[in-house]
Simulated assay, not measured.
Amino acid sequence: MSSLQHDPAFYQLLAESYTRLTGRLLVPATVPLHVAPRWLYEEAPFAVLAHNTAADPVFIYGNKAAQQRFGYSWDELVQLPSRQSAEAPNREARQQFLERVQRQGYEDGYSGVRITRAGQRFMIEEATLWQLLDAAGTLHGQAVIIPRTRDL
């Protein structure tokens, strides 16, 4: 798979599906479109992750803020089943959240415990998860924006 880090088409899927479902912009309007994919990956002050539609979804994208918070490099992250971002006892609540998003298109205000590669637990707060739907309505996975986290 080619790298989605700065891919304009993948950025367009992320940004347009987010705006279509939430009515909000993923990247500030002050960021020019031609640099928006790089800004989201390199400079965004919030974490963004996306996983695919596999039966056991695998992350396909995680910006630098997400990599730093979860403790994975790009190459490690894009091989990780997304369920492994939560400890086993928290996976059922996470799965219920994912299913609500499948039904509703997106959900705001989610908080939940996650785990770093090194096993450190932390809380994600005020997260928004949305369906990665292209303009034709084809589902490509789900993505999340995590504006805030705190150590536990």
Rank of each mutant, 00 (worst) to 15 (best):
T30N: 04
M123N: 08
L80H: 09
H51Y: 09
L49Y: 09
P57M: 08
R121C: 14
R83G: 15
L33S: 15
A66K: 02
F46S: 12
K64W: 06
Q12P: 01
A118E: 06
R114H: 13
G119K: 01
G71Y: 03
Y72N: 03
A65Q: 08
H51F: 06
L26M: 12
V113M: 03
N52Q: 02
N52S: 02
A9R: 10
N90G: 08
A127Q: 12
L21T: 09
Q131C: 09
R83P: 11
D75Q: 15
G23L: 10
V144E: 04
V48H: 01
A55L: 12
A55G: 12
P89N: 07
R117D: 03
A127H: 08
T30L: 10
P81N: 07
L139Q: 06
V78P: 00
P28E: 04
Q67H: 06
Q79W: 09
H6Y: 12
G71V: 01
R100S: 15
W130S: 14
I124P: 11
F70T: 09
A9W: 02
G112K: 09
R38G: 02
R83C: 15
G112E: 10
P32N: 01
A29D: 11
Q120V: 06
R69V: 06
Q95R: 13
R121F: 11
A86C: 02
V35F: 04
E99F: 12
P89S: 08
H6V: 06
L21G: 15
L98V: 07
E126A: 06
T116Q: 08
V31A: 00
P28V: 01
P37H: 04
Q68S: 15
A15L: 04
G71C: 04
R20H: 10
T128L: 07
L132R: 03
E99L: 13
V58S: 13
R94W: 10
T116L: 04
D108L: 15
A9G: 01
F46C: 12
Y11I: 14
P89V: 04
P32G: 02
L129F: 14
Q84V: 12
H51I: 07
G23F: 13
A65Y: 04
T30C: 07
Q67F: 07
H34G: 04
H51C: 09
P28A: 07
Q84S: 13
L40I: 02
P8Y: 01
Q142V: 13
V35M: 06
Y11H: 11
A66L: 05
L26R: 05
A50H: 07
A36H: 01
T30H: 05
R24Q: 11
P57C: 10
G141V: 00
Y72L: 07
G112S: 14
L49P: 03
P89D: 07
H51Q: 11
W74C: 03
Q104R: 12
V101Q: 00
Q142R: 14
